[in-house]
Simulated assay, not measured.
Amino acid sequence: MKFIDSKFMRDICNVTKQSYDNGWDERNGGNISIRITEDELKDFDDVKEVKRTFDLGFDAKEVAGQYFLVTGTGRYFRNVISRPTEDVGLVKITEDGKHADLHWGYEDGAKPTSEFPTHLMSHIARLKTDKNQRVVMHCHPTNFIAMSFTQTLDEKRLSRILWKMQAESLVVFPEGIGIIPYMTPGTNEIGEATAAKMSEFKVVMWPHHGIFAVGSDPDETFGLIETVEKAALIFTTIQAQGGNILQDITDEELKELAQAFGVTANSKFLK
């Protein structure tokens, strides 16, 4: 069986296309990684050989031996569906944790996204609280980014705004939203700051830049971002209509939502 025909490749092609079509990934903005187990790869004959090796620039020993399907640096999400063997690669973290071996893809010489260390740090952080953690996705949702310019960068305030925009918000991200300060992307420092937030949140805002989100599969992770951005769009629309909110979802109603759907809302963010 060829890896190009795998569910993982269908998923990454579908998610990157939809994300680009939504306007979240201009030019080469955005990246995604999916953790894949060795057992899930056993039937693919074309992933056995190591083709190249990359330096990670940090110690990822905690996920040594793990495979990750990851988009390439400088590559456009809109092209992944038409040129997947060039724009996506399957890598395995070496036992020393400092390198990644390429087993499939990047056929024209590409490398993993410059955000790959940040992805790995987030995978490591989330696996400590969620053994089903599989996906990290970064993109640039327009309305969510806009809120980082006009709203106080306060996790409680931002989470409450987004929760109150639609009933789905609390159900999909009951932990709320994590926020880091503005930082230069592609550095270990921003990766460490993001991973620290991932111990508590599934969504982290990069102010004036974008979003980092995690999940158990591509659909769940994409749906999480989609829900956050829809809430931000509703808020933006309200502001465009004058910003005068006459009624909203109350804290009591938020608590009722959490109970009805069996989720635990972040008690620090509820009154």
Rank of each mutant, 00 (worst) to 15 (best):
M1D: 12
K7I: 08
F8I: 03
K17S: 14
S19L: 10
Y20V: 02
N22R: 12
N22P: 00
N28F: 06
G30M: 01
T37C: 10
D39Y: 07
D46F: 01
D55F: 14
L56K: 05
A60D: 00
E62K: 07
V63F: 04
A64R: 07
Y67S: 03
G72S: 13
R78C: 11
V80N: 08
R83L: 08
T85N: 07
G89H: 10
V91I: 13
V91M: 04
K92G: 06
G97P: 03
G105Q: 02
D108K: 13
D108S: 11
K111E: 09
S114T: 03
S114D: 00
P117A: 05
T118A: 11
S122M: 15
K128Y: 08
N132A: 12
M137H: 11
C139Y: 05
C139T: 09
F144K: 01
A146R: 10
S148T: 13
Q151K: 09
T152G: 12
S159M: 14
P174C: 13
E175G: 02
G178F: 10
Y182R: 11
M183E: 15
T184G: 00
G186N: 06
A195S: 11
F201N: 09
V204A: 01
L224V: 02
E226W: 09
E229S: 07
E229H: 04
K230L: 06
A232R: 10
L233A: 13
I238N: 10
T250C: 11
A260T: 13
K271C: 01
